[in-house]
Design a protein around this nucleic acid. Sequence first.
DNA 1: GCCCGGAGGGACCGATCGGTCCGGTACGCT
DNA 2: AGCGTACCGGACCGATCGGTCCCTCCGGGC
Lengths: 193, 193
Amino acid sequence: MARTPAPDTRDRILDAASDLFRERGARAVGLQQVIDRCGCGKNVLYREFASKDELVAAYLERCQEEWSAIMDAAIAPHDDAPERQLVELVRAAVQQVSAPGFRACPFRFTHAEFPDEGHPARKVAVDHVRKLRARLRDLATRAGAHDPRTLADQLTLLIDGIYSSGPMLGRRGPATVAVALADDLVRASCGRH
Amino acid sequence: MARTPAPDTRDRILDAASDLFRERGARAVGLQQVIDRCGCGKNVLYREFASKDELVAAYLERCQEEWSAIMDAAIAPHDDAPERQLVELVRAAVQQVSAPGFRACPFRFTHAEFPDEGHPARKVAVDHVRKLRARLRDLATRAGAHDPRTLADQLTLLIDGIYSSGPMLGRRGPATVAVALADDLVRASCGRH
DNA sequence: GCCCGGAGGGACCGATCGGTCCGGTACGCT
DNA sequence: AGCGTACCGGACCGATCGGTCCCTCCGGGC
């Protein structure tokens, strides 16, 4: 034996690919650009990822992990107040689209970029929004909402609207009213008439 | 003199391009595919449109016209009840994303597909969402909302959410609660306590 | 009937696409 | 030291990209 493969190779490639995909879109980025930014050999990329489609799917999986971490961090401080957690998830979304470099929701955008049903990235994207919806339903139930499914769907719609509206109308756009609206919805649905 | 240019050429090309762009995304569609579907010569396309970017912009302008017509038709029957018109605009959005072939909102998607600030299609896309927001503000004002700007932003957010959530979660998704939510918001904001 | 010009279609351009393969280099273990 | 391997970088593949150009065919005004 002579040399052991660097264990962080996959992460390095994914770092480069994520930056590029996020700001330009997966379709607009060639693998050569990923190679160049990563500074690795092309064969190494193809050892770690079978195809560009797989790389895009891995990119979305990483987005999913980041998103989960953000959501966890947003709701952790209020673990005993699920109504508050619902509002905090909305606030976290607003903060994300308000970040300087935010271009579009990676899940919605990538899902639209690859219309073919079998594309591996689509599974990840759909899985993400389903998980989010389920999470909202769970919180709505624990918050004692009259109709947890409806409240969860209202908030899902609201969060989707934040991601969609943010990039086009900016920080001063409709997203500014989102947190207050979420608060109203939660309050209206969780007793406290 | 020998022959006069066919006046419908531009429309024919735009017909073909619109179908393809709508279902696959502008970046995923090559001009050769547009040519093939249209059945025209490549030189004709480049006589009508200076570049692909211009073609994409023209596609969005046509979307804009269609959208305006849909909105006009949705609110025309209730010209004396602006609160009702606000709700009808939301209903029109739900119906659009519920249509079988609907993939993504052309404005949001194309805006994300071409991140370069100077791209001609971006102006059209941003212009559209601004017009929608302005329209909602106007209606909210005429409906006598306490805070027309806030109500308009709430509904903008809601409509954006419908377009964003529809393609991924389908007809049974959160969009089903949108009209009822819009009705609540309008009612709450326009007196009628 | 002739002939001009619009239209279809395709050859062609350089660049880039996703993907494969190979050669040189440098590193780590024995 | 020397061997073996991981890695970088680039050559290379066929296909397609956006875009230019040209040839052929056909239709309409003189």
